[in-house]
Each structure stands twice: as structure tokens, then as C-alpha cells.
Amino acid sequence: MSDSPVLHGSNKRQRYESLVDQLYQDVFRYALWVCKNQPMAEDLVQETFLRAWRSLDSLENDKAAKAWLFTILRRENARQYERYRPELVDIEGQSIADAGDQEPDQRMERQLLLSAIKRLDQEYREPLLLQVIGGFSGKEIAEIMDLNNNTVMTRLFRARSKLKQDFGVDAEEVD
């Protein structure tokens, strides 16, 4: 199971602040992959937490908070943008690959990996990102995506197989 936040505080406001504090980074990272555009990702995160605040009382199990937020985000994204969004110019991909202090070789490697992830079909990319960014188990991903567990595990396997093939991991020596 993904790292479970402990929502501190006895009242709704305190629980919400604890939710933001512990999870907004992961939610933003996932939103950025989904939107490929920072302003839109920030808006999507804002809408996600707005809806979370409004229905926070319905969250009975704090351990499910992260999966709950990601589910809200996916629904909100589908509701707001997915049907209508034109193909975006991916201006954020470059910044994802360039983030941090890196040697040119490392930067190139990240860009290659980023390109390989983007080339994955959405049905493979989505569970992979939920696992890598959200830290979700196969069962949690199955619930978020409304799929069965075997389907999720197969898609994760295929996603990594394709990445290895594209990224050349199978051919290289591992340190």
C-alpha cells in the first residue's frame, strides 16, 4: 500500500491542512504528467483540493486519503479537460528532464527515459505513473482505475518491458 498520511487534528480544517501538507507535492507531480502544462496542472490540483475540502467528511479512512485524492484528480481532469483538450505543446517535458543539477549525460538519459514514457500507450503509462509517483499497490491502482488487479499487473509489466526495450536497459550493464 502507498505511504499513508496521518491526518493530524480533530477538526475538518486541521485534517485538510494536514492533507495538503503531506500530499500536495505528489498530487501536483501527477497532475503535471497528466496535463503536460504547469498552469493547467496547478489549476487541476486546486480543483482537486477544493472538491476534497467539500467532501472531506466522507473520507472515513485516512489511509485511503492519497488514493482518494488521485481519484478525484482523475475524475476532475476527465470532467474539465479530457474531452476537449487539444494536443498540447509539451513545454513541461523539457523542464521535468532538466530539473536538478545534472551532468549532461544524466540529462540526456532523463530525456530519453521521458521520451520513452511518453511513447507508451496511455493504458500502460497511466498505471505506471500511479505506481511510480503515487506509490500505489496494484490493488490500489485497480481501484483508482476501476480495473481488475490482474489487468493492472499485466499493464505494468508491459509498460516496463516496453520502456526497457526503448530505453535499452536489457542491453546495458547494471552498476
Binding site: L113, L128, R160, L163, K164
Partner: peptide, 19 residues
């Protein structure tokens, strides 16, 4: 080893951005 090697690169890429 190869699978873990790829995964560590994926994690590193995923964590590269901050809000």
C-alpha cells in the same frame, strides 16, 4: 537487478519536479 535499475531511474525522474 535490471528491473530495479530502471525503477530507480523512474523514481528519480518522477521526483524531479516540485510544486
Amino acid at each position: 537487478d535490471r528491473s530495479r535499475h530502471l525503477n530507480s531511474k523512474l523514481h528519480s525522474l518522477a521526483q524531479a519536479t516540485t510544486a
